[in-house]
Design a binder for these strands. Structure first.
Length: 429
RNA sequence: GUGGGUGUAGCUCAGUUGGUGGUAGCACCUGGUUGUGGCCCAGGAGGUCGUGGGUUCAAGUCCCAUCACUCACCCCA
C-alpha cells in the first residue's frame, strides 16, 4: 500500500510552486511598500486562544479544529489569534504605538475538501494594531486591491459595517423580530442560525431565504453615530485612493471578533469558494485576549485561491533558468568539470551538469530543458588543446575559451572561469 | 457531517454486446549526426486496470462492499 498525503493536504510540486513564489514575492513587495513588518508564529497554540478569539459557537471552533485533546493544544485555524498573542506577549504595543504586521503560512481546518478549500491551506495575513483611524481601514483595503491588481486577478471588493457593542445589540434585536415573523419560510439551516448567530441568516445562499431577507432591516441604518461616522470616513478614504467597492448589507463574517468595517475580495471564477481575501476591524479583541486596550484591523488572503486564479488565466510559471550547463565528455573531462561547476557556483552563477556520462546530444537536450543560457563543452580534445567551447544556446554562436596549457587542473580552471565570468558579465550588462 | 460524480502508464485519457491491456497524446530513455539542443522520424521503457469479494468457461467491462479523489451543501481565505 502506497503512502499518500492525507485527504485535504497537498504537495506543491515544481511547475506549480513557481506561481506560489510569484504570489508570495509580490505580496512581500507590496507589504513592504506599505511599511509592514513580517512576523512568524508557531503553528501550535493553546486551544483556549482560538476559543476565546474566534468564538466558542463558531463552526471553526466547534467542529473544524485539529486539536490534541489530551494536551489542550490546537493547530491554528487562522492567523489573527496567534499574531495577537505574539503581539501581547512581546509587548509590541510599547515598542511602537501602531504596529503594522504581516505573516504568511499554513492554517488547518478539518472541513470536507473541495475546490479552493483544503484542510491545510495557506494565508497571507495582514494586521494593523493600535489605531482606530478609518484611514487605515481604507489603506489596507487599498493595499489588498493593489496586490490583487499587481497579480492580475480580477476581483470585486464588498464592504459592510457590523457596528460595535453599542449599536449591534439593538440591531440584533430588530433583526430577530424580523426573522421571527417569517421563520416558517426560512430553511432549516437558518432556523438553527437564528438561534446561534442571527446575523448569518442575512447571507444564506438559499434562494427562498434570500427573498425573505431582501426586505430585512439593514445594519447600516442602525449604526450608532460613532460607527456611522467611521464608516463614512472609510468610504471617503477609499474614494480618495481610487479604490472601487460596493456595499453589501448582507455580508456577515463568520468569526465573532469583528466590529465595524468588514470586507471581502470576491471572485466569480472559483465556484463556491468565492472569497479570495477577507477581513475587518476587531476593536475589542486584543483586550479580550489579555492585552492592552488597542483597536485592530486586518485581513487574510488565501494563497491556494490566488494560485487557482492565476492558473485559470493560464499564467505561465517562470521556469528556473541555468546560466551555464557544463557538458563534460568522457571521464577525464567530467572529472575536470565537477570542481569547475562548483567554483562557478561559488562565484554566483547558476550551474548544472550531468553526472551520468551521457552523450553530448543528450546533454544538449538536458541543457535545453533546464533553459540554460550557455553550454560549456569540454572533451578530451579541449583538455589537450587548452580550449573549451562555449555555446550560446539562443544565438547558437560558439567560441573558444582558453584553458591554460599548464597541466595543473587548478590553474586551467582559474583562467577558464575568469573568462566565463567576464563574458557572462558583459553579456548581461 | 450530507448528497452527486470519477478511479486504466508519471500526467491527460480511449477501451464496442463480458473474449489476449491502447500504433493515443504529453513526459522519459536510445538512435537517426565519431562531439552539438528546440522541429521531425524510428525504436524502447513504463500497468497487480484503486482495493477486496461475488457472478461467469472467461471481468478493465456486470453485481456488492470498501478506500481514494473530486464537485456541491455547509463553512470560510
Amino acid at each position: 500500500m502506497k503512502i499518500k498525503a492525507l485527504n485535504g493536504f497537498k504537495d506543491i510540486v515544481p511547475g506549480e510552486v513557481e506561481l506560489w513564489q510569484k504570489v508570495e514575492n509580490t505580496a512581500r513587495d507590496i507589504f513592504s511598500r506599505f511599511n509592514f513588518s513580517e512576523i512568524r508564529m508557531p503553528i501550535l497554540e493553546k486551544t483556549d486562544l482560538f476559543a476565546r478569539s474566534i468564538g466558542e459557537a463558531t463552526d471553526i471552533v466547534e467542529k473544524e479544529m485539529y486539536t490534541f485533546v489530551d494536551k489542550q493544544i490546537t493547530m491554528r485555524p487562522e492567523a489573527t489569534a496567534s499574531l495577537l498573542r505574539a503581539y501581547i506577549q512581546h509587548g509590541l504595543h510599547v515598542q511602537k504605538p501602531v504596529q503594522r504586521l504581516f505573516t504568511i503560512g499554513p492554517m488547518f481546518r478539518h472541513e470536507r475538501p473541495q475546490k479552493g478549500r483544503l484542510r491545510q491551506f495557506h494565508q497571507m495575513d495582514v494586521e494593523v494594531l493600535g489605531t482606530p483611524n478609518p484611514k487605515v481601514d481604507a489603506e489596507i483595503m487599498a493595499m489588498g486591491a493593489m496586490l490583487l491588481e499587481e497579480l492580475g486577478v480580477t476581483v470585486s471588493l464588498e464592504m459592510n459595517s457590523l457596528g460595535c457593542p453599542v449599536c449591534r445589540p439593538g440591531f440584533r434585536a430588530t433583526l430577530l423580530a424580523f426573522i421571527e415573523d417569517r421563520k416558517e419560510a426560512l430553511c432549516d439551516d437558518c432556523a438553527r442560525r437564528s438561534k446561534t448567530n442571527p446575523l448569518r441568516v442575512l447571507d444564506c445562499k438559499n434562494s427562498k431565504c434570500r427573498e425573505q431577507v431582501e426586505e430585512a432591516p439593514s445594519i447600516l441604518e442602525h449604526l450608532c453615530d460613532d460607527c456611522d461616522e467611521h464608516f463614512s470616513a472609510v468610504q471617503n478614504g477609499l474614494q480618495q485612493l481610487g479604490v472601487k467597492y460596493s456595499l453589501n448589507k448582507f455580508m456577515v463574517r463568520g468569526l465573532d471578533y469583528y466590529t465595524r468595517t468588514t470586507f471581502e475580495f470576491i471572485t466569480e471564477n472559483l465556484g463556491a469558494q468565492a472569497a479570495v481575501g477577507a477581513g475587518g476591524r476587531y476593536d475589542g479583541l486584543v483586550e479580550k485576549l489579555g492585552g492592552p486596550k488597542v483597536p485592530g484591523i486586518g485581513f487574510a488572503l488565501g494563497i491556494e485561491r490566488l494560485v487557482l486564479l492565476l492558473q485559470l488565466q493560464e499564467e505561465e510559471a517562470d521556469s528556473s533558468i541555468v546560466d551555464i550547463f557544463v557538458a563534460g565528455l568522457g571521464e577525464k573531462a567530467s572529472k575536470f568539470a565537477f570542481p569547475l561547476v562548483h567554483t562557478l557556483r561559488k562565484k554566483g552563477l547558476q550551474m548544472a551538469m550531468d553526472h551520468e556520462g551521457r552523450s553530448l546530444k543528450s546533454q544538449m537536450k538536458q541543457a535545453n530543458k533546464v533553459n540554460s543560457r550557455y553550454v560549456l563543452i569540454i572533451g578530451e580534445n579541449e583538455l589537450e588543446q587548452g580550449q573549451a567551447v562555449l555555446r550560446n544556446m539562443e544565438t547558437q554562436e560558439q567560441q573558444d575559451i582558453a584553458i591554460n596549457s599548464d597541466d595543473n587542473n587548478n590553474n586551467k580552471m582559474v583562467s577558464l572561469l575568469l573568462g566565463l565570468t567576464q563574458l557572462y558579465a558583459n553579456n548581461n550588462k
